[in-house]
Each structure stands twice: as structure tokens, then as C-alpha cells.
């Protein structure tokens, strides 16, 4: 267990160190959301209708950003060899990386999501649910994203490839996440959607590390 914490601490430190990842993802998130009124027009009625959904779309795109470095930097400098010979199996390493990705990228994005949605005209009543759904959804995005990141190790064009691999898998969390908010806004029961979103996140966190570890072993071999 000690090894797991060593790993998690390092991942967190590297994400926050040198002001990189999370801030960049946040800026990207806000910038994408800024393009929305520019694209569809600033009419509040029109914006408000799509605000929660667009916030979710921007969230999914923003969470792609730091995936490229998740395994790639350790692969490039040989650290992945070292991680494969550590006290805990690669599956646990992958879990630590996914968890760190969620805490350092998913969580800040979840904090920003309500702000962005409200700026686009979403109702203030929706704020808690937008935050919670973005936070829970971030878990699924981090772990499915991690699978794409590990699979594209050793490929010629990491970033775009990860997006192509991972975006179809983002369909369920986007549907459930945006669906929960929409249901709530429409006065419908939003619990099932949130439940499905949580189930997807937990399943991704439980199964994703196996796929990531298999992909890493393959890349090292």
C-alpha cells in the first residue's frame, strides 16, 4: 500500500508542479465555452437552452488535454520501466494515475463547470447539480481517458489519436451527466441519470486500470 501512496503523491506533485496541466485545462474549458455564444449568437434564450449541455461538452474536451502526458512522459524517459518493477503491480500504478488525473484535472474542471454554465445562462438552481455531475463524471472521463492514453503509447501522433480513441467512449458520461441536469431543469426525476453516471465512473475506475496496465506492458515489451 505504501507504494501506492508514493505513486499517488508523485503524480499529484507533477500535475500541480510548474503550473501546467490543470490551469491549461481550465483555460481551455473557458475558451471553448466562450466560443459558444460567438457561434450560436448571444441571445440569452437560445444560450440558456444549451448551456448545461455545452458546459458538459466543453468539459469532455477539456479533460482530454492532459491525457497525452499521463503515460507518455514516463514512457519517454524510461520511468515506466521503473514503475513496472515497483512494489505494487502496474494495475495499481494505473489506478493511482487515473485517480491523480481526476483529482488534479477533473476536480478543478468540476469547480469551474457551474461558473461556465451560469455565465452561459443556466439557472442558478442548477449549480449544485452541475458541480456534482461534473465531479462524478470526471471520474469516468479520467479513467476511460487513461485507457486511450496508455493505448497510444509508442504511436506517432499521441494527442489526436487519444481523442479519436476516447471520444466515442465519452458518450455515456456526457449523456448521463448532461441528462441529469436537463431532467432536473425540466422538473423530471434526475436521480437515475446521476446513478448511471456514478455507475459508469465506478466501473471505469474498477476496470480501466487493467486495460491501462495491459497497454503499458505491451508498449514496454
Amino acid at each position: 500500500m505504501n507504494g501506492f501512496w508514493v505513486m499517488l503523491r508523485r503524480e499529484m506533485a507533477m500535475a500541480w508542479g510548474r503550473g501546467g496541466g490543470p490551469l491549461l485545462a481550465l483555460t481551455f474549458f473557458v475558451a471553448t465555452a466562450t466560443l459558444l455564444p460567438l457561434a450560436v449568437g448571444a441571445s440569452p434564450a437560445r444560450l440558456a437552452a444549451v448551456a448545461p449541455g455545452s458546459a458538459w461538452l466543453a468539459l469532455a474536451l477539456a479533460s482530454l488535454l492532459s491525457l497525452e502526458r499521463l503515460f507518455e512522459r514516463d514512457y519517454e524517459d524510461g520511468t515506466l520501466d521503473l514503475l513496472a518493477l515497483g512494489p505494487v503491480p502496474l494495475e495499481a500504478v494505473a489506478f493511482a494515475k487515473g485517480l491523480a488525473q481526476w483529482l488534479t484535472n477533473g476536480a478543478p474542471l468540476a469547480l469551474a463547470a457551474p461558473v461556465v454554465a451560469v455565465a452561459l445562462g443556466a439557472d442558478l438552481r442548477l449549480v449544485p447539480l452541475i458541480f456534482i455531475s461534473a465531479l462524478i463524471g470526471g471520474l469516468g472521463l479520467a479513467f476511460t481517458g487513461g485507457i486511450g492514453a496508455a493505448l497510444s503509447l509508442g504511436s506517432k501522433r499521441g494527442g489526436v489519436l487519444i481523442a479519436v480513441l476516447v471520444l466515442p467512449l465519452f458518450a455515456p458520461p456526457v449523456i448521463f451527466g448532461a441528462g441529469a441536469i436537463e431532467a432536473f431543469a425540466g422538473g423530471l426525476d434526475w436521480h437515475p441519470a446521476l446513478g448511471l453516471l456514478s455507475a459508469y465512473g465506478l466501473a471505469a475506475a474498477a476496470l480501466g486500470p487493467f486495460a491501462m496496465a495491459a497497454a503499458c506492458r505491451n508498449a514496454l515489451s
Partner: peptide
């Protein structure tokens, strides 16, 4: 091997995607 892993991940996800799209 990488593509095979992806195919299996997709195979697990396919029913989930189908379900989520129906739900949507």
C-alpha cells in the same frame, strides 16, 4: 495487441453506449 485491447474495451462499452443512447 494495443488494437486488441481497444477492441475489448469497445466490446464492453458497446452495450453501455447503446443503452445510454436509448436512454438519451
Amino acid at each position: 495487441r494495443a488494437a486488441s485491447i481497444l477492441a475489448l474495451v469497445g466490446l464492453i462499452n458497446l452495450p453501455i453506449i447503446k443503452f445510454s443512447v436509448d436512454w438519451w
